[in-house]
């Protein structure tokens, strides 16, 4: 079982090593002639106005929080999907598994409608 992860470990080591070599070789081969203009943030040729370390829209955080909720739901659904045919719940066989997922999806849908109505998905 664990043996199948050995090639993966080798692959990750190989890719990391290659990426490091590519960046290092490029660093060694390239010339470096900095000028004051090159050392400024590129804003289409205009002199940069203010810092880029500004506050940004809270909606990006909101999306991240919502993502966690729905991704965990996907994480629950993936094993359910794999095991669905063999499920035997509530003494009803496959129907039990279906009811179980139905209840879960309904609870999730209530939350989803709430989030939608509160305008968390509103971008325009």
């Amino acid at each position: 079982m664990l043996q199948s992860y050995v090639p993966l470990a080798l692959l990750i080591a190989f890719v990391v090593l290659n990426a490091a070599i590519m960046v290092a070789v490029s660093h060694l081969l390239s010339a470096s002639r900095p000028t004051p203009v090159k050392e400024r943030p590129y804003e289409s040729g205009m002199p940069p106005l203010g810092s880029a370390r500004e506050r940004f829209d809270v909606k990006f955080y909101l999306v991240a929080v919502l993502f966690i909720v729905f991704d965990i739901e996907v994480v629950f659904m993936l094993p359910w999907g794999v095991a669905f045919r063999q499920l035997d719940l509530l003494g009803l066989g496959m129907l039990g598994g279906l009811i179980e997922m139905g209840v879960f999806v309904v609870i999730l849908a209530v939350g989803y409608v709430y989030v939608w109505k509160r305008g968390a998905l509103q971008w325009s």
Partner: peptide, 18 residues
Amino acid sequence: EVSMGLSAVAVLVLAGSI
């Protein structure tokens, strides 16, 4: 990514394997 994972669930239901 959420939609991608969800659409894969249907595949897993039919395949019964991951």
